[in-house]
Every structure is written in C-alpha cells, then in structure tokens.
Design a protein around this nucleic acid. Structure first.
Lengths: 149, 149
DNA sequence: ATTGTTGCAAAGTGTTTGCACAAAC
DNA sequence: GTTTGTGCAAACACTTTGCAACAAT
C-alpha cells in the first residue's frame, strides 16, 4: 500500500520539481507552504494558510508565506484568485481538479464547481481573441442555501 | 433629434432613480460620480474615477468616490470587478453591453469582450447549483498583442 | 565560503471610517 | 430644523520590502 493513500502527491512533487528546476533551494518555509497547499481542497487566503501552518506546528513568517505563494504562482503551479473579498486566495493548480468558484456575498462562503461546457466556451474564446490566454478565472456571486434559508 | 445622441442616458437615469428610490438624496458627489460612470466604456479603478472627475473640474473627495461606488454596487447598477491587479474596478451595469475582461499580465491592459455561448454556459450553471446566482465575473489572463510583439 | 532563504518590523497601497461642516429636504 | 451628504485626515487591512541572521549548497 502507498505511504499515505491520498492522491495529492503528484502535485506536491511536480511543484517541488518546478521550484528546483527554477533554481530555488529547498528551504523550510517553502516546504511547509507546499505541504499546506497540498493538503487543501480549495482556495485559501494567505492569512488562512499562515494560520493553518501555525496550527500544524510549522509556523512560517507571513512574508515568507507571501513570497512562496508568489513564486509558485509565477511558476504556474499555484492559482491565485481574487473573489471580490478584498484579498487574494491561493490553491494548488491540479490539472485533474480544475474548478471555479461560487461566492456567497452574505457569509463569504467559497464553493468550488466545475463545468465542461463552460471550459469549452472559454477555450473557444481563447482561440478567437488577440491575446495569448494563459489562465482564466470565473466567479459566480450570489447567496448560498444557508443564507437564503 | 435626441438631445445628445449618445445611448448612455438610459443607464444614468435608471441609476439615479434607483438611488432616489433607495432614499438617497441628490448630492453633488453622487451626481458627479454617476456622470463619470456614464461616460466610461469599461471598468475603471476608484483612483482613475477620482482623477477623471478632477480632470473634468468636478473634483470629489476620495472617500465619497468609494462611498458612492459602494452604494451603486449595492443597488446593482454598478459592477465591481477584481481583475487580479490588487484593486477593484467599477463600471456601469448596462444590460445591453454586458461583457467580461481580458487582462494583460505584463502591461496591465484591460480589454472587454463578450460571448454568447459563454453566457449560455453560465446561465446553465446558475440553474444547476444550489446558489442564487446574482452576478458573474469572468477574467482571462494572458499577454496582449503589443506585449508579445 | 558563497549564495539563497527566512523572519521581523517597517513601509506601501488601496479602502474604510470618524467627524465637523455643508447641503438637501 | 432635521437629517443626510461630503471632504479631510486618520485608521485599517492586506501585501511588499529592507535588512540582519540563518541555512543550503
């Protein structure tokens, strides 16, 4: 049986490889942030990531959290999204779990969703425009079930 | 012949009406911001709006710019978008010119686009999810023609 | 030994808020 | 005359940067 049983390792490994290929050394903060991202299912803010790291006993300075997230985003292995909440959110860019977000404007809940027709529409647009499209971000705003209740 | 010939009046009028219906008084700052929004084709930042107002000789305090934009957004007549540039942008929400944005990550250029199949895909998703979707925002990131040249 | 990495604190930037004065009703 | 709107400056929240100590190579 595999060491951990979860299916996230592929991302963490390729992200670590991307870092070393780019000439970065293997530092403690970098490894910790990578581990945290690997463990999260959806996009978290830098503060949430910092808190999660502290919670797991691997505290990392805030500046380092931001620096590492920026590096990873630059390398294309982390997605940075702004959901209209005044702060950025970060999540691992897993090819096999590409998704977008629903945001509840009342309680702030963030829920992921994915949709093939939507991706096809985006792909078609990307071919049509005079832009080399590298990423896309779709945010649906509204009220979640709990807040409507 | 119509007074001005441009087609923007419908928005400014309905926005002004929404404001008075909501119980807001007709103040100078409010009118100036409304006029500015009415004159712009795409989403501008609060600073850009403030500068544009100063340029037209209708200077408005920064706080008022933000306050009015927030009111208008709250009333649903202004769209607030975050394009990953660390600041919000605002534009009049004209039913007849619904569009989304391409962002050049190198020079910061913001270009609007619209696409029917994309809107249909969004509408289909909105029906499917357990969320009352009120708005959606689509951002395509990439490199514009100039920056690739 | 050299060079990159980290944490802290300070600075920066966009946005919001408190408050006194002015304007709308 | 009462209530709301406005501008200024201060406060705020998130993010970035400078720098000295530290760790990786």
């Amino acid at each position: 049986m595999a060491p951990t049983g979860h299916t996230h390792e592929a991302w963490a490994e390729s992200a670590a490889e991307a870092l070393s290929r780019a000439g970065y050394r293997r530092g403690g903060a970098r490894a910790a942030v990578l581990e945290q991202l690997d463990a999260q299912a959806c996009a978290l803010t830098a503060y949430e990531i910092e808190a999660a790291l502290r919670g797991r006993g691997r505290a990392v300075g805030r500046a380092s959290v931001y620096r590492v997230l920026e590096e990873l985003h630059e390398l294309g292995v982390v997605t940075k999204v702004e959901l209209g909440q005044g702060q950025a959110r970060y999540e691992p860019n897993r090819a096999e779990h590409h998704h977008h977000h629903l945001v509840c404007d009342r309680c702030g809940a963030v829920v992921p969703f994915d949709d093939e027709p939507l991706e096809r529409a985006i792909a078609a647009i990307s071919r049509k425009v005079d832009f080399e499209v590298s990423e896309h971000e779709i945010v649906l705003h509204g009220a979640c079930a709990d807040c409507r209740a």
